[in-house]
């Protein structure tokens, strides 16, 4: 049985699973890209520090995470590339569905999330860049779970 993922993300994946028309899929993703908000200035301002650059993301997306409650995080992203629309959509989805979710759920985000959202027509380079964004979020959660016995117990119970 698969482990529980953040409920909002599960809901979104259910919605995408039924879509057969790619433009319908792209319309929803574009709405997420429109809703993207860059990291607030009290956390970082451009030019963003290179050590926050997401590796392998051709859109030069930057990433930050801040604790949000005992076992959750708020995820922030920013990009200096105006045409980075797919990366902005992915970032907005990760923020909308995974910020505030318990780390023991975030670690179970499927690695093929970009393909499930964007469809099978994604080029390899583009896919790996988006997977890298997902990886940043999961890494923060994974690092937390490793040092948190309560999270590990929750994960074992599958809650």
């Amino acid at each position: 049985m698969s482990q529980p993922i953040p409920p909002k993300l599960a809901e979104l994946l259910d919605e995408f699973a039924d879509i057969t028309d790619r433009y319908e899929r792209y319309e929803i993703l574009t709405e997420f890209a429109d809703a993207f908000r860059p990291v607030p200035e009290h956390i970082a301002r451009p030019p963003y520090p290179q050590d926050h650059l997401v590796p392998y993301c051709e859109s030069q997306m930057y990433f930050w995470a801040r604790p949000d409650g005992d076992h959750a995080f708020k995820f922030y992203f920013a990009s200096e590339n105006a045409q980075s629309i797919s990366a902005r959509a992915m970032a907005a989805i990760l923020d909308e569905t995974c910020s505030g979710a318990p780390a023991w759920q975030v670690v179970h985000i499927p690695d093929d999330l970009p393909q499930r959202l964007f469809g099978k027509d994604l080029a390899m380079g583009r896919t790996l860049g988006l997977v890298s964004l997902v990886g940043m979020v999961k890494n923060v959660a994974r690092t937390h779970v490793k040092t948190c016995p309560q999270c590990q117990a929750q994960a074992e119970r599958g809650e």
Partner: peptide, 9 residues
């Protein structure tokens, strides 16, 4: 495009 979301956007 390289980015599949640019055209629909």
């Amino acid at each position: 495009n390289e980015d599949p979301l640019l055209y629909p956007s």
